Amino acid sequence: MNELQITELNGQRVLTTQQIADGYGTTNKVISNNFNNNRTRFEEGKHFVLLVGEYLKEFLHSQNLGTQNKIRKLYLWTEKGALLHAKSLGTDEAWDMYDILVDTYFKVKEEKQAPLTLDQQIAAIATGYGSVKEELVEVKDRVSDLEENAPLSAGEYNYIGSRINQRVAEVARGYGKITREQRGKLFKDINQGVKVVTGVSTRTQLRAKHFDTVVDFTNNWEPSTATKMQLRQMSFDFEE
């Protein structure tokens, strides 16, 4: 168990299908069949996250797996997703490994001391520990920092990806039939715009504070003039 590679998405620990299969003493195919046979029990964003397209490329790159170009989609399982698989498989080995995962792999989130609420910290300060004014300022700064850097939830992360895919499809329809390369130009344009308006270098670095900005940008996104000219030129080349 100590050799299990840490896999994280937006600061939350997850497991790949391969990791669950290895831990539960079975195969990827069994895990996939178990998922398909119990599909109604698994809820996206709660039990698993499905990565495709640019999200998948960025994730593989962040995990130093950028060379695995043949991967077209990747399921990442949360702690609750791992529990559902253990329940569905029902083997002693699966349950034993799930207990180990909870006690070690996923326990890291429990070991991080939960910050006190602002009211609780103010109350503690008011009891006489240190300078009330100085401690109050420090508490407010810490709370602001926590709010500023809160990660996107899995559901928000997935929604942004879906909305970007939808918006690209909407714009692409205006060009009639386009090639995969042309569609790639549109994705490159919108993803670059997301990075510009949020100030992040990769989409996996997005935080909760960016959610409304990204959604608003995506809803109003139009390709840049340079991208439009590239698409038209590629259409001319295709017709020739």
Rank of each mutant, 00 (worst) to 15 (best):
Q113F: 10
P115M: 05
P115I: 04
L116C: 04
L116R: 13
L116N: 08
T117Q: 11
L118P: 03
Q120C: 04
Q120I: 01
Q120S: 07
Q120E: 15
Q121C: 06
Q121L: 08
I122E: 09
A123K: 11
A123C: 03
A124S: 09
I125T: 11
G128A: 05
G128K: 07
Y129R: 12
Y129P: 00
V132R: 10
V132L: 13
K133R: 11
E134N: 12
L136M: 11
V137G: 01
V139Y: 06
V139N: 05
V139S: 09
K140D: 03
K140T: 12
V143Y: 08
S144K: 13
S144D: 11
D145V: 02
D145P: 00
D145L: 10
D145G: 00
D145K: 12
L146P: 02
E147W: 00
P151L: 01
L152K: 02
S153Y: 03
E156Q: 07
E156T: 00
Y157F: 08
N158F: 03
Y159A: 06
G161F: 08
G161E: 04
G161D: 05
I164A: 03
Q166T: 11
Q166E: 09
R167K: 12
R167D: 01
R167Q: 06
V168W: 00
A169S: 13
V171R: 05
A172C: 02
A172E: 02
Y175Q: 00
Y175L: 01
I178R: 04
T179M: 09
T179V: 10
Q182M: 14
K185G: 00
K185Y: 14
L186G: 13
F187H: 15
N191V: 07
N191T: 09
N191P: 06
Q192G: 15
Q192V: 01
G193V: 13
V194K: 09
V196E: 11
T198I: 06
T198D: 05
V200E: 04
V200F: 02
S201I: 14
S201H: 14
Q205N: 11
R207F: 01
R207P: 01
R207N: 03
R207E: 06
K209Q: 08
D212C: 01
D212Q: 11
T213F: 05
T213I: 15
V214W: 00
V215L: 15
D216Q: 12
D216H: 10
F217M: 14
F217Y: 15
W221S: 10
W221F: 05
W221C: 06
E222P: 04
E222Q: 15
P223F: 05
P223E: 02
S224G: 15
T225R: 14
T227Q: 00
T227P: 02
K228C: 11
K228F: 03
L231R: 02
M234H: 05
M234N: 06
S235N: 12
D237C: 08
F238G: 06
